[in-house]
Design a protein around this nucleic acid. Structure first.
Lengths: 200, 200
DNA sequence: TCGTTGCGAAACTTGGACGTATCGAAATTA
DNA sequence: TAATTTCGATACGTCCAAGTTTCGCAACGA
């Protein structure tokens, strides 16, 4: 018996480097964040960026898609804490988290991939949606439903439509709004616009 | 002097085939519509799909990006005729045109490219936005401004925000809504939701 | 009819990425 | 210390698409 028996018995030889593994995933996310599509990614580019031998990648992942799946899976949703004081405040919090993320190249991964690669990599998308998108969506849905129940929102509100208005407006600004950073008060303005509507 | 002097004097030799040119552009749009990114397109695939020799492509375009630019430029916006009776009706017409297009593979080009390739092909995007997106955007802006002027919409409405709500909600449904075709009444529901707002 | 140019097909060269193998060094167990 | 495994680096053969060239034929003007 060996001294350490916690979990799996460590095999002989040099252990795999956690650091290398993280560097590989970071490099992958970086490249995707810079606008690369999945099919543009090359293992060689990832290895080079990560300062790692190709062997070290192939020892862990047998192909590019597996690597991307794992890389995206590490993008956990750091959901904003919701104050719960008012539906308006909570919606602003959620949308402002979107705004903040849209500035970071890293989080652009989410959008770039979600937007463009759905058709080509369905397996990847499925897992990615579940991991990174669904939790946020669920959070927003919960807030809206709470608002309907509490009377802060219209009783006859279509919840999905509400999500479409709010999220869609944020996406629109990200992609087609004025150049540069999104304004700091964008989330608030979007929420207020969606709440009050366009009609007088 | 030659007999025909109408415009440019025809050079000697066999004239270029209009048919081949159209076939090339059609093939390009088809492939993009099937979900291919610009970088996934191969000249050989285009030539093969168009039933054309690679030579015939390279004789006209010196590289892939030029070809894609021209191909997308032919996607003219078949703008819906606006009745002008009410702002609501006109907005529904505009959004319903979006819905109808999202069903056609050909028009998915617009979305796929616009969504995903912005960072990588800025030159392409610029020309494409000008040609295919800006006219529709301008039409919607005009309708909203008319509504503000006529009192059909809030006097203090932020026009850009209104566009974001409407267009964004349509995009959201296209990309993340329930599977399958968009419901026939989606445009109407989006417009009404955006007009009346989420607050009671 | 003849010269010119475009046509599709195919051969060709080049370059990049793939995935594998091999190297000496490093890290760990026994 | 010896055995084992991973490390980064690099070389290798394969494949695929890019882009160029060549070929025989077709379409046009003179």
């Amino acid at each position: 018996m060996t001294i350490q028996e916690t979990g799996t018995a460590r095999p002989a030889g040099r252990p795999r480097s956690e650091k290398a593994e993280r560097a590989i995933i970071e490099a992958t996310l970086d490249l995707i964040g810079e606008g690369m599509g999945v099919s543009d990614l090359s293992i060689e580019a990832i290895a080079s960026r990560a300062g790692v031998g190709k062997t070290t990648i192939y020892r862990r992942w047998s192909n590019k898609e597996d690597l991307v799946v794992d890389a995206l899976a590490t993008l956990k949703a750091p959901m904003p804490r919701l104050s719960g004081t008012s539906v308006r405040d909570d919606l602003i919090s959620l949308l402002d988290a979107m705004r903040a993320e849209s500035g970071q190249p890293r989080s652009r991964c989410v959008m770039n991939i979600a937007m463009s690669e759905a058709d080509r990599y369905p397996r990847l998308m499925e897992r990615f949606m579940k991991r990174a998108v669904e939790p946020r969506r669920e959070a927003m849905r919960a807030v809206i439903e709470r608002g309907v129940a509490s009377g802060e929102l219209r009783a006859d509100l279509d919840v999905e439509m509400g999500m479409a208005l709010l999220s869609g407006a944020m996406i629109w600004h990200t992609k087609w709004g004025p150049e540069g950073e999104l304004p700091a008060d964008l989330a608030e303005r979007v929420v207020d616009a969606a709440l009050s509507g366009m009609a007088p």
